[in-house]
Every structure is written in C-alpha cells, then in structure tokens.
C-alpha cells in the first residue's frame, strides 16, 4: 500500500500531460518552430515554481515524510555527455513528438502505435549500456 501515493501522482501526471496537450506531436513541432507560447509557458511555469521551491527547501532545510532532510545531489561534471546525449535525445523528441513520460501517457490515451516508440526507447537504453565504455563521457 505504500506505493499508492505514487500511483495517484502518476495518474495526476498523466491527466495533466494529456489535458495540456504536451503529449501531442503537433505541440512539440509548434514548440521547436517557436510558433506558440504554450509549451514554453508549461515548462517556464514549472521551472519558475521549481527554482523557488528548491531554494526554499534548501534554505529552511525542509524534511521529507520520513523526517529526513530533502537532499539534492550534484550531477557529474561533464560537457560532452550532456551535450551529445541531449542532442541525440532532442533528435528523437522532435521526430517522434514525445519525451519519455508522454510516450506512456499516449498509450493510455489510445494511441497504441506509441508502443513501438516505447519498445525502441528501451532498446535504445540497452544499446547505450552496450556502447557505454566506448563513448566519451
């Protein structure tokens, strides 16, 4: 039963992603063509509140539900892995019109062919791990 809260959060996430139309290939195209504010508004609002909230958590050392302080861990310093990995991700995002969350929301919405994107995203993750040692990080 301890997982039910994550189920509820996931359901809310799925509904918000679908109802904001952020799961739409058309909306992603509109975003990358800079022809509407919509997607930038969604990300910008989440980010503005996110930056303020994280700053408050750090300043007031807010604790989680277990009573432990909420901690943030710095990511490894690098340029190449973030830039190269990010660029490959962006190519896939603009082609398929979905990032990982919206892939599965689309399946629930009834766009079952998105299952191909889902399976190949898992294949891509596997491929990365096969090639990991040979890639610059």
């Amino acid at each position: 039963m301890k997982f039910i809260k994550f189920l509820v959060l996931g359901i809310v996430f799925g509904i918000v992603m679908a109802k904001s139309e952020a799961i739409s290939w058309f909306r992603i195209q509109e975003m990358f063509r800079f022809q509407a504010f919509h997607m930038y508004g969604i990300i910008g609002t989440a980010l503005t509140l996110g930056v303020m909230g994280v700053a408050l958590i750090k300043k007031f050392r807010i604790k989680n539900f277990r009573g432990n302080p909420i901690l943030f861990y710095p990511k490894d310093n690098s340029v190449i892995r973030y830039l190269a990995g990010g660029t490959i991700f962006g190519l896939g995002w603009a082609l398929s019109g979905v990032c990982p969350g919206p892939i599965v929301v689309n399946i629930g919405y009834g766009f079952f062919t998105m299952g191909i994107v889902f399976l190949f995203a898992i294949a891509g993750t596997y491929l990365y791990n096969l090639l990991k040692e040979k890639l610059p990080h």
């Binding site: 990995g85 490959i88 991700f89 896939g92 979905v98 990982p100 891509g124 596997y126 791990n129």
Partner: peptide
C-alpha cells in the same frame, strides 16, 4: 524516434 529518445536520455543522464 524511440531509439534516440532512449539512448539519448541515458547518455545525457
């Protein structure tokens, strides 16, 4: 599309 999303997101962490 899926392959690049999966590969890229893991490469970029």
């Amino acid at each position: 599309g899926g392959l690049m999303v999966g590969f890229g997101s893991r490469y970029a962490g």
